[in-house]
């Protein structure tokens, strides 16, 4: 149960830079205008980030695309945990069937 000094140095360097990425958005947000195009951009950011994260995974194969469509439909009426269970079981099953 030891920590190698080089490993600790790498972990600290990663940690400092990662925290900088996390705090920077909060620091610059105070200087951003409260209306106009910048505000439109920030309002659009959550759906833009979520879509960007999801799109390559969804379009990586037929099993994933079908599961995403079912997930979208299920998410309108079912609780999140159930939606996740359905998605995981369905994608695993479809990958077996389709050989994905």
């Amino acid at each position: 149960m030891t920590i190698d000094p080089w490993n600790l140095a790498a972990i600290l360097a990663m940690g400092v830079l990662t925290y900088l990425t996390r705090i920077t958005g909060f620091l610059i947000a105070d200087r951003l205008p409260k209306s106009g195009p910048v505000r439109v951009a920030l309002n659009a950011l959550p759906p833009a980030v979520l879509t960007a994260v999801v799109a390559p995974a969804v379009l990586s194969g037929p099993a994933e695309a079908i599961t995403a469509a079912v997930t979208l439909f299920a998410a309108f009426r079912l609780p999140l945990l159930l939606v996740v269970v359905i998605a995981v079981v369905l994608v695993a099953t479809l990958r077996q069937i389709l050989g994905g």
């Binding site: 995974a57 996740v84 995981v88």
Partner: peptide
């Protein structure tokens, strides 16, 4: 086991 697709499912919802 399909666990990787839990995250897209959460983010889609």
């Amino acid at each position: 086991l399909g666990f990787d697709f839990a995250f897209p499912a959460i983010f889609i919802s």
